[in-house]
């Protein structure tokens, strides 16, 4: 506990440093809790079941596959991986 998140960037194919983030569209989320169960630690859910990323949603490279799994299993298509 108390560990800072690891490196905050991924290198894209062109060698540029990009920061990948996971986002939840709160208009679309209906609280299925699939992301919460699929990607432990990546999301938090409120009392009504609505999800938001933990922290600012930055994805370390080792978390990319897990985030993609959350995207693939959300029935509301509410989760996105974006680069900033």
């Amino acid at each position: 506990m108390g560990r800072r998140p690891g490196p905050r960037a991924a290198i894209d194919a062109g060698g540029l440093v990009v920061v990948m983030k996971v986002k939840v569209d709160s208009e679309k989320c209906q609280g299925h809790n699939r992301c919460y169960a699929m990607a432990p630690g990546m999301f938090k859910v409120d009392e009504l079941g609505y999800a938001t990323p933990r922290g600012d949603g930055t994805l370390t490279p080792d978390k990319m596959a897990l985030a993609q799994k959350a995207v693939d299993n959300c029935p509301e298509r509410a989760i996105e991986i974006v680069d900033e």
Binding site: Q30, G31, H32, N33, R34, G49, K69, D72, N73, C74, P75, E76, R77
Partner: peptide, 19 residues
Amino acid sequence: EKNPHIAFGVGIHRCAGSN
């Protein structure tokens, strides 16, 4: 791996008892 099933519905009436 990829299972966005809608057994509990989808949209605003998503099953409230799903958990």
